[in-house]
């Protein structure tokens, strides 16, 4: 069996009194797209930067392509591509010039013109970095990460701030990279990104791994389904409690915000009937009542008891 692309064992990282990463262990198999999903401040970037050799593990072991990212840095770096969450280019450098420069640091770079075309960077090739839009800066960052034809790319929040079109173009390129045999590790706090792109998802919260699996494995919770109830007036504070009592055992009620909650359990006619009766008895006017399969958002909510901020 080939060694994994990334193997993290018992990684712990602290900043002063704050524990950013707490005894984290995870593996990334080769030729996969792996998403590290979690809210802002969950420890995603710290984990990634430890893999990239920027930070020395305070406890635990990190191996990337079988190498120690700190001690075997020079051997590792040419084989990986890195996209930082922000920045990385001179403010006065033109987009095409930056990409050509990065290409010149590699032995067998991609064709810069074709890569620019692919990522929609051709039309802003002569624009200085500081005048690129946020989405263009992100795409240039991605191009800089892949132009050296790495075996493994780490992309930190690759589509943050992108419009829908650019986001889909980016996903398409990341999928093609995987098809071509490149391992992709991305952090994201977009559920849709993890769900649609990733072969495997690691959910991190407060620096700890709380779930791992394919999007399908994570969302398939047995016979469970979800009912999402959205109302027009804020729920009374006691609503989750009283609804839970009305529904009986085996059914979970999770408040999302003042106007919506998620009911997780066997979503059959009986449950639906009980929900509508509860609404009637409590004078609650439903705006929508959606029945559906669990998605990663529901999984996160169930695991942590709070919704994943998708802002």
């Amino acid at each position: 069996m080939p060694e994994p692309a990334v193997e993290i064992t018992g990684l712990t990282m602290r900043y002063g009194a704050t524990v950013a990463v707490d005894d984290l262990s995870l593996r990334v198999e080769r030729d996969s797209v792996t998403a590290v999903l979690g809210p802002n401040g969950a420890g995603k970037t710290t984990t990634l930067e430890t893999c990239e050799g920027y930070r020395r593990p305070q406890a635990g072991v990190v191996r990337v392509l079988g190498l120690d990212p700190v001690r075997q840095r020079r051997e590792l770096l040419p084989r990986i591509g890195v996209m930082l969450q922000a920045g990385g280019a001179w403010s006065g450098v033109r987009a095409a010039e930056m990409l050509a420069h990065v290409a010149s640091l590699h032995a067998h770079p991609l064709d810069v013109g074709m890569l620019s075309d692919r990522l929609g960077l051709a039309e802003c090739g002569r624009t200085p970095y500081r005048r690129l839009s946020g989405g263009q800066q992100q795409r240039l960052g991605l191009a800089m990460a892949v132009v050296g034809r790495p075996e493994l790319v780490f992309v930190d929040e690759p589509t943050a701030g992108m419009d829908v079109g650019a986001r889909h173009a980016t996903w398409e390129l990341l999928r093609e990279l995987r098809e071509a045999g490149v391992t992709v590790v991305l952090t994201t706090h977009y559920l849709e990104e993890a769900e649609r792109l990733a072969d495997r998802v690691h959910i991190i919260d407060h620096g700890r791994l709380i779930a791992s699996g394919s999007p399908l494995e994570l969302t398939r919770g047995g016979s469970h389904a979800t009912i999402r109830l959205v109302v027009t007036e804020p729920f009374p504070p006691s609503a989750p409690e009283s609804l839970r009592a009305a529904l009986g055992a085996g059914i979970e009620v999770l408040p999302v915000d003042a106007y919506s909650l998620v009911i997780s359990g066997p979503a059959d006619a009986t449950t639906l009937g009980k929900v509508s009766r509860w609404c009637e008895e409590n004078g609650v006017l439903p705006e929508s009542l959606n029945l559906g399969q669990r998605n990663l958002e529901d999984v996160f909510l169930e695991l942590t008891g709070r919704p994943l901020e998708t802002a």
């Binding site: 084989r79 990986i80 010149s104 067998h108 991609l110 050296g148 034809r149 071509a180 490149v182």
Partner: peptide, 17 residues
């Protein structure tokens, strides 16, 4: 022609970099 993304990693020679 299409973009060939297959890995071919490697650093350029130091003097060139």
């Amino acid at each position: 022609s299409t973009l060939t993304l297959t890995p071919a990693p490697g650093a350029a020679p130091l003097p060139r970099m």
